[in-house]
Amino acid sequence: MSASPAQYLDPKVLARLEGLALRARSVVEGYVAGIHRSPFHGFSIEFAEHREYAPGDDLRYLDWKVLARSDRYCLKQFEEETNLVCNLLLDTSESMSYRSEGAAMSKLEYAKCAAASLAYLILHQQDSVGMVTFDREIRALVRPSGNPSHLKDILQVMERSAGERKTATGTIFHELAERFKKRGIAIIFSDLLDDVDALLAGLKHFRHRRHEVVLMHVLDPAEIDFPFDKLTLFRGLEGLPELLTEPRALRKAYLEEMQKFIHRLKWGCRQQRIDYVLVRTDRSLEIVLSSYLASRK
């Protein structure tokens, strides 16, 4: 099965994203000079700061002017501009396959489109992008690369991903935080229907490793609004039991539970300076992405 770019890359979406470069808000470790700031200071044209001279420092960077004026030994330091390394984390668990009647596509399909669009954008701005698909374990991992042909590999991985199993985001995030040696951006596409505490702990691990994290919380409109009005048999995904109930009587309680869940996620993300983006699958993808990218400028 060959991946077709057109399957996940909507020209209209890409056109809308043109010019909206994914600029790393915090410092990332790049390995090719680019438009993003690097934590490694060195030779560059953009001055960063002075520091006291220490024995062994390269005297080429000694600021003679300061020495002449103040008789102090200061070294000039410059910021190094480097390429962005972005890892796209795609939840491919069974719950992501849910699609209500009011949505144009399932959560997984929506997340794939969003991930593909961002991958295209990142590669287009000469940065590196990688891809991880996971459920209760890592199913596929594409290492970051800035090669334009790398997009094809990413699309192929997404093509092979079908929501079938349970998810365990907390464990996965811990594992990935350890795997990503180079600091960069981790963009997570998931419905996050998992243990919130474990999930937040995993995200915290990312932050501990100095990764910038963007949490794309993908939810179906039915999961947010719960519009059912007739007696309904709900068949639980990911091995959860069935439930025959009168949804009108439960709507209020369900919405309260859902709002509480979203609120906990938002609160946890805010504490760890993680971007939280609630994505409804009935909303236009181009608007969702462009709005978020514009907010990062």
């Binding site: 849910y98 209500s100 179906d220 007739k230 309904t232 048999l233 709900f234 439930l243 859902m258």
Partner: peptide, 8 residues
Amino acid sequence: RETAWAAM
């Protein structure tokens, strides 16, 4: 009616 449901 029947429906699959993720947020069970």
